[in-house]
């Protein structure tokens, strides 16, 4: 069996909701069934075969080629299989994803990994604002799983994140880990202003000391044994973080304006 491949014919004018196209939804469906699935686009419903050339038959291994930044909700709530996206993705990539694997070879827009509860999202590119954040109305952002970003992330990465691991190899924008509830975010590059604003719990791992506001307090330099364990668990991941083996850090705790049980660890 070869991977089920959807190749976008033309750049769409309206945004398209890709939520029905997940391996679990497509499992067992014939080519005709898949072609007949209707996708929401503005106030219209568009058949899959009107948008995509369809090839292959293994729905557990979905490939979206020629993808475009107007394709929203790729991999929404998926529970199995893998999706590979070649090109850019729109907003809400891996929204409420439960299991499986999504690889994006391109850039994603806002709210990637929002509500994600498990699985692996790897973005070989940049993501927009609100990575792993809660959408308005939700009280928690990402709730589990692993997110790897090889490029940069926008503002508010990890806003209200509850659990899981985000590894960003590039830079992040302002308000990283704002209102974070728990979980782990690693950033290899630079971070923007107001880091850890309103952070309640959770761990932020940095490679250089950021500008910090007054309610983040220095707790001194430490050798933390849990870091060895954490980096050991990263070993198999397709990320530069898998090669790290250091556990000596400067520990800053905060945000003291919001319980102050979070921590920002900076390698020394």
């Amino acid at each position: 069996m070869s991977a089920l491949t959807l190749t976008l014919k033309n750049a769409p004018e309206q945004r398209i909701d890709m939520a029905p196209l997940t391996p679990d939804n497509l499992a067992g469906k014939s080519m005709a069934d898949i072609a007949a699935i209707e996708l929401l686009s503005g106030n219209r419903r568009l058949r899959v075969d009107s948008l995509f050339d369809i090839a292959g038959d293994d729905a557990g291994n979905l490939v979206i080629n020629n993808a475009n930044g107007k394709l929203d909700f790729i991999g929404r709530g998926m529970k199995q299989g893998s999706i590979t996206v070649n090109g850019n993705a729109g907003s809400y990539l891996a929204f409420q994803m439960r299991k499986g694997e999504i690889t994006l070879n391109g850039n994603a827009d806002a709210f990637a990994a929002s509500g994600m509860a498990g699985g692996l999202l790897k973005v070989n590119g940049n993501v927009g604002d609100f990575l792993a954040a809660a959408i308005p109305g939700d009280r928690k952002g990402m709730k589990g799983g692993t997110v790897i970003i090889t490029g940069n992330a926008g503002d508010r990465a990890g806003d209200q994140m509850r659990r899981g691991i985000i590894l960003i190899e590039g830079n992040v924008g302002a308000y990283c880990a704002s209102r974070m509830l728990a979980g782990t975010i690693g950033v290899m590059g630079s971070v923007g202003d107001h880091i850890g604003y309103g952070m309640r719990r959770g761990t932020l791992l940095l490679f250089s000391t950021p500008k910090m506001h007054a309610t983040l307090q220095d707790c001194g330099s430490h050798t933390l044994p849990f870091l060895s364990l954490m980096f050991k668990s990263f070993k198999g991941l397709p990320s530069k973080f898998g090669a790290i083996n250091r556990n000596r850090v400067q520990r800053y705790a905060g945000d003291l304006a919001n319980d102050g049980k979070g921590e920002i660890l900076v390698f020394i």
Partner: peptide
């Protein structure tokens, strides 16, 4: 502090010599 790696939950308890994991 609770941490989950590889499907397992660990606890980090602050103690006088550093952290008990």
């Amino acid at each position: 502090i609770s941490k989950q790696f590889g499907g397992k939950r660990y606890w980090r308890v602050p103690v006088m010599d550093g952290e008990f994991m």
